[in-house]
């Protein structure tokens, strides 16, 4: 198996897995280029490629949101799992195919790999690409801390706005992933946040301004992986990466300002 992007129809995958379609029956003719097998949504956001299909044992709405942010075409739940917390509704609203198979991850991977032309997903961040239109746009949102039911809604909205404006899907995807990582940080670690999306002729800018615990050492929080963090920082829930490295990877410019006890502001910019 090599990473030569082949394509396979979702219908073929469905049949190979004996899967039951829960959402998107009308989109089974769509083709996918890659398979991504993971239960770790931070990995899906960081390394998943557009037009993939996700095989996962995580049946929550967050799994579907992550697949959507990463521009996947569909999600297959393994081991007969059924979607939870409105995952189905989210798939329906965002035109994702959602299926479930009784197979476990190993068998599902083997069966799909046996289908001709299927490529294997490798870890690689999306290539930045610039394009855009000459317009000006601004919109404000709020994120409530600990509101898991609504987690992902702001980034979903940002994504749909930018898509409607007509930006390059790759650029939209980078903005969506970065916003989602930022949004999840707020939901998990802060009380609330004000979010501003602003589009100028040259730049898309997302500012997430939260009221929260703040980050004691921003530089350290920016480093990959939790092993680099000090124990105190990990105890505070920071330095665990917090998705910041992934935001940095996906954006053209990231500015983090933080005051312990007050909050953190992320200014994320994408050059068009």
């Amino acid at each position: 198996m090599e990473d030569t992007a082949g394509t396979v129809k979702i219908e073929t995958i469905k049949q190979a897995l004996g899967a039951v379609v829960l959402e998107g029956q009308d989109r089974l003719n769509a083709a996918v280029d890659h398979v991504y097998a993971s239960d770790l949504m931070s990995d899906v956001l960081a390394f998943g490629k557009p037009d993939s299909i996700l095989l996962t044992g995580l049946a929550t709405r967050q799994a579907i949101i992550s697949a959507h942010m990463a521009e996947f075409k569909g999600v297959v739940l393994i081991r007969g799992k059924r979607p939870k917390d409105g995952a189905e509704q989210f798939a329906r609203d965002n035109q994702l195919v959602l299926m479930t198979t009784e197979m476990d991850m190993y068998d599902a991977c083997v069966r799909i790999a046996a289908e001709e032309g299927m490529a294997v997903t490798h870890a690689a961040a999306a290539e930045p690409e610039s394009s855009g239109e000459d317009i000006l746009f601004s919109n404000n949102f709020t994120i409530e801390g600990s509101d898991f039911a609504k987690a992902g809604m702001v980034s979903t909205e940002v994504k749909s706005i930018l898509k409607k404006i007509g930006f390059d899907p790759k650029l939209v995807r980078r903005v969506a992933i970065s916003t989602y990582e930022g949004e999840m940080n707020v939901v998990m670690h802060a009380k609330r946040a004000a979010v501003r999306l602003q589009v100028t002729p040259k730049v898309i800018e997302i500012v997430i301004d939260d009221e929260g615990k703040g980050i004691p050492d921003v530089e350290q929080a920016m480093q990959e992986g939790f092993t680099t963090a000090t124990e105190e920082m990990r105890a505070m829930g920071f330095g665990s990466g917090m998705g910041l490295p992934n935001i940095k990877r996906n954006s053209d410019d990231l500015e983090v300002t933080s005051e312990v006890g007050l909050g953190t502001t992320l200014r994320i910019r994408f050059f068009i």
Partner: peptide, 18 residues
């Protein structure tokens, strides 16, 4: 190797699922 690709190799060794 990513999980998906490793699975192909393990399958090639004749290993079956759990």
């Amino acid at each position: 190797l990513p999980s998906f690709e490793l699975v192909g190799k393990l399958y090639g060794l004749g290993l079956v699922s759990s």
